[in-house]
């Protein structure tokens, strides 16, 4: 076989021979033809149109506007799961729910002074264990929590020097649920066994009473004994009644009027199974 690359100039047949030997695969290739201009099939257009329509339907589901601040669809209403009801998180017995909320408030706001066991600290912070003012009339108790207390106690003792207990409403931005929870917690914990629930409605009443006070600043023993030795107004709540653990409201109070009417006949038996068996999994 001749070696074409040793010759100074390749002749045509040599190029062909060399191509056949060295570039067999490339030699049998076909050239790429220029793309044609056949009309686009109607079926392709129809299929693409269909895809575009369904994409439009998907996009339409978002409501209008490209709004970065909007997390929910316009007019979005949480729909209950099929076969279930829409009463928020699984309900809890009132005492458990209020105690859970109270524990949260206690451990973030009260625990620093009154300590984890509620016994306070000697000369500075009074103990709440068995305290008549905590376990007694709820309005007096709520006024202390909301507005604070200073000056001599009924025993004549002065805690924390002149400053006394600060107003928890002013310093901690309490919500009625927090007040109700923490009062229930104190009255049923640390060995206290009052057994009743200070409801959210009572706590709301406490806020309005506190707002109408004639005196400003922290309360004193004189003011409390003169004006606030009574229980907060409001219907008592059965500690075993089922409540929403977030709002602390009884589970059937929140539904819309027509739904409530429809449910009226079921109401007496409904709370019982809700206690555990049908909680969402």
């Amino acid at each position: 076989m001749s070696l074409p690359n040793q010759k100074p100039e390749l002749e045509g047949t040599d190029i062909q021979r060399r191509a056949a030997r060295e570039a067999a695969a490339c030699g049998r290739e076909k050239p790429i033809a220029k793309p044609g201009s056949a009309p686009i099939s109607v079926w392709v257009l129809a299929a693409c149109g269909l895809a575009a329509v369904s994409a439009g339907a998907i996009l339409g589901g978002a409501g209008k506007g490209f709004d970065y601040n909007k997390i929910f669809r316009d007019g979005y209403v949480r729909t209950p799961p099929p076969g279930g009801s829409d009463e928020g998180p699984p309900p809890k017995a009132a005492m458990d729910a209020y105690m859970a909320r109270g524990k949260k408030v206690w451990s973030s706001k009260c625990i620093t002074c009154h300590q984890a066991d509620g016994k306070g600290q000697g000369d500075n912070f009074p103990s709440l264990v068995g305290s008549a003012w905590a376990l007694g009339e709820t309005e007096r108790f709520s006024m202390i929590v909301l507005n604070g207390l200073h000056g001599p106690m009924s025993t004549g003792k002065i805690y924390s020097g002149a400053s006394g207990m600060p107003s928890q409403n002013a310093t901690n931005d309490l919500k009625p649920e927090d007040l109700a929870g923490v009062m229930t917690y104190v009255r049923n914990n640390f060995g206290n066994t009052k057994g009743d629930v200070v409801t959210v409605d009572m706590a709301k009443a406490a806020f309005s009473i506190s707002a109408k006070r004639t005196k400003t600043g922290q309360t004193t023993v004189e003011e409390l004994t003169a004006e606030h030795v009574k229980d907060l107004p409001g219907k008592p709540l059965d500690p075993k009644a089922m409540v929403n653990p977030l709002t602390l409201m009884p589970v059937f109070a929140k539904t819309a009027p027509d739904a409530a009417a429809a449910k009226k006949d079921k109401t007496p038996e409904a709370p019982a199974p809700a206690a555990g068996t049908t909680a969402p999994k």
């Binding site: 099939s41 392709v44 299929a47 693409c48 895809a51 575009a52 369904s54 994409a55 439009g56 998907i58 996009l59 589901g61 978002a62 409501g63 506007g65 490209f66 709004d67 970065y68 601040n69 909007k70 997390i71 929910f72 669809r73």
Partner: peptide, 27 residues
């Protein structure tokens, strides 16, 4: 998920629309 509501919808619509370029090339 709590991200701006239009993002998932735009994503879904665009993924459906990818039918068009893919269909064109495939056909």
């Amino acid at each position: 998920a709590p991200i701006p509501i239009f993002l998932p919808y735009v994503g879904g619509a665009a993924t459906a629309l990818i039918f068009i370029p893919a269909c064109a090339a495939a056909v």
